[in-house]
């Protein structure tokens, strides 16, 4: 039987030390035996390694999220005229809002996606996470959203040190003293703006779950992983799949509560007494998502099928004790290629 030919566009090609998930997503999609896939890379910068790795049949630059959804739609419509994209998979938190907004218009020109709604996206935002946990009965650390550094002492008094000071979008600092907390506040404010989130510190073992919801409350896949090597940016450089039904059940409970559609990652801190605190919910696949394919639950491929409206049978088992080990690799690239993507926005 001949494979169905499809074209899939993917963002997140920045396979650097704090990697985007794009390359892992592409590898998963390409491994699906049901499809003959043509990959269109979508990049923001000319030096994103994924542009040059030979995994993308063609790459186009797209406008930064700050340019707005109309600029993105305009660019994608142009690319689609040439490439006839079947499915698009955005992989950055910061770009998701625009992609969700234009999803119906993309659908109208033949580009399918499988994304959460704006309501789902906002509910799990770190600013709203505590309320979300309270509403649905999840363990979530207490937090306060603050706009003034003078609010710190009272919160620290209530939570006790250490406290976690988090930026609106990225980065977090564990502060042991008021001075450290104030310094972190100012640093994160300068970088990401207000508000700042101050969170109760939870001690335990960090575990991540990559999962895929079908938008109707059903879990298509959930794979728990423990980081074995962590970079100074807190990113997993090696990890291993775990056998733990309670974590799979937690992901299923999250999907059931939110009717989540698409991929996501739960960042969990399990305390010594076994309570799984949800520290963050990332509204897209994590950079280690290729491990799910290696463990027998190819989430990127399943997402493509869901986006195309195909029925996907939920995965029931996965291989425990499968490791991913990331590595760095120097590619040699001719300046002519760099010039093409830089000057023309295509390669």
């Amino acid at each position: 039987m001949s494979k169905r030919k499809i074209t899939v566009a993917v963002t997140g090609l920045n396979a650097v030390d704090s990697p985007g998930p794009g390359i892992a997503v592409i590898r998963g999609v390409k491994e699906c035996t049901d499809f003959d896939v043509r990959i269109i890379g979508l990049s923001y910068e000319s030096l994103e390694p994924g542009i040059y790795m030979g995994l993308c049949d063609k790459t186009y630059q797209i406008p930064y999220p700050t340019a707005g959804s109309e600029a993105l739609l305009h660019r994608l419509a142009f690319i689609n005229e040439k490439e006839k994209i079947d499915v698009i998979i955005p992989n950055f938190d910061a770009e998701l809002y625009n992609f969700i907004k234009i999803a119906p218009k993309l659908k109208a020109i033949g580009i399918n996606s499988f994304l959460p709604t704006h309501e789902q996206f906002d509910a799990r935002d770190k600013i709203n996470l505590y309320a979300f946990g309270q509403k649905h009965g999840f363990y979530v650390p207490r937090d306060r959203v603050i706009y003034d550094v003078h609010e710190l002492p009272a919160i620290a008094e209530q939570f006790g040190y250490p406290i976690v000071v988090k930026g609106k979008y990225y980065e977090a600092t564990v502060a042991q003293t008021l001075e450290q907390a104030q310094k972190a506040f100012h640093k994160l404010n300068a970088k990401w703006g207000l508000p700042i989130i101050v969170q109760e510190f939870i001690n335990g073992t960090e575990i991540n779950v990559a999962a895929l919801g079908d938008g109707k409350g059903n879990t298509v896949s959930a794979v728990p992983m423990r980081k074995m090597v962590i970079t100074d940016k807190g990113k997993a450089w090696a990890g291993i799949t775990l056998e733990d039904q309670s974590l799979v059940d937690l992901a299923a409970k999250f999907i059931s509560a939110t009717k989540w559609s698409g991929g996501f990652e739960l960042e969990i801190m399990r305390t010594m007494d076994g309570r799984p605190y949800i520290m963050e919910v990332n509204p897209r696949f994590p950079a280690w998502i290729y491990l799910t394919a290696g463990a027998g639950q190819n989430q990127p491929a399943a997402l493509v099928k869901l986006a195309l409206g195909e029925k996907v049978t939920p995965y029931k088992t996965y291989l425990v004790g499968k490791l991913f080990i990331r590595y760095s690799w120097d590619m040699i690239v001719d300046v002519s290629e760099f010039q093409k993507i830089s000057a023309f926005g295509e390669l």
């Binding site: 423990r226 990890g239 799949t241 775990l242 425990v320 004790g321």
Partner: peptide
Amino acid sequence: SESGFIFNPGTG
């Protein structure tokens, strides 16, 4: 394993 390698699949 026979070589004495122990793996805890619950914790990794």
